[in-house]
């Protein structure tokens, strides 16, 4: 059932490629705006790069949360999913994973290119990409709770940012922190361990909380 949900969502994404590309280009544009705002001084930019890329990833992932359930909600698929005898948490986990595959993975793949724009050294590029690889699934997992709670509400898109962004803060701190620690010559393993811990905790609790939220929203 898990693979069925993922395959279906990926197929929908392939049929509607614009959705995937908008998120990716949003990410690229936000990252490219910062040098225009703070000036082209490379030494400043190099220091700011991890934070900028991470904040942009947070925003991009958050903006695409609306699509996680809303299309299924509008065409009635979500009701059928709720009625299905399979565990709702499992199906929701599938939706979360496909959200990550559709929006998270392109960001991870694009991050090294954007890092080059900021003149990051090769080792920092590797750490940045790996930290995003470890961190972006957490964004999809936690974000799903917000997406489920705001389903069908007026102003849902802005509301979801209020709910979800404060919860993203630990991921931002340790994701960007890993890159900074590695450029400063400190180890980044501790940051990765913590990101991994967040990933495991949210993998356990987020599907459950999202399933409960969906049931509340669909009552």
């Amino acid at each position: 059932m898990l693979t069925w949900v993922i395959r279906r969502d990926l197929l929908l994404a392939v049929r509607r490629q614009a959705d995937v590309l908008t998120t990716l280009f949003f990410f690229i544009i936000v990252v490219s705006l910062f040098p225009l705002g703070v000036g082209p001084e490379m030494n400043t930019l190099r220091i700011m790069a991890p934070g900028i890329v991470w904040v942009a990833a947070l925003l991009a992932s958050m903006l695409s949360l609306g699509r996680m359930f809303s299309n299924d909600y509008l065409d009635g698929t979500l009701e059928q999913i709720l009625l299905s005898p399979t565990s709702l948490s499992l199906l929701v986990l599938g939706k979360m994973l496909s959200h990550w595959l559709i929006t998270g993975v392109p960001l991870v793949l694009m991050a090294p290119v954007l890092g080059i724009q900021y003149d990051l050294p090769f080792s920092a590029l590797v750490v940045l990409t790996l930290s995003l690889l470890l961190g972006t699934p957490i964004l999809s997992l936690i974000g799903a709770i917000g997406a489920a709670l705001t389903l069908g509400l007026r102003g849902g898109g802005v509301l979801v940012s209020l709910l979800v962004l404060p919860l993203y803060i630990p991921v931002l701190i340790f994701g960007a922190g890993a890159v900074e620690a590695s450029t400063a010559g400190l180890g980044f393993e501790a940051h990765f361990s913590l990101l991994g811990a967040f990933l495991l905790v949210s993998l356990v609790f987020a599907p459950w909380a999202t399933a409960a939220s969906l049931r509340i929203s669909m009552e």
Partner: peptide, 14 residues
């Protein structure tokens, strides 16, 4: 309630 509980779990982490 769900967002409050998620928040209270997250407060120590944050």
């Amino acid at each position: 309630a769900i967002i409050a509980l998620v928040g209270v779990v997250n407060i120590p982490i944050i």
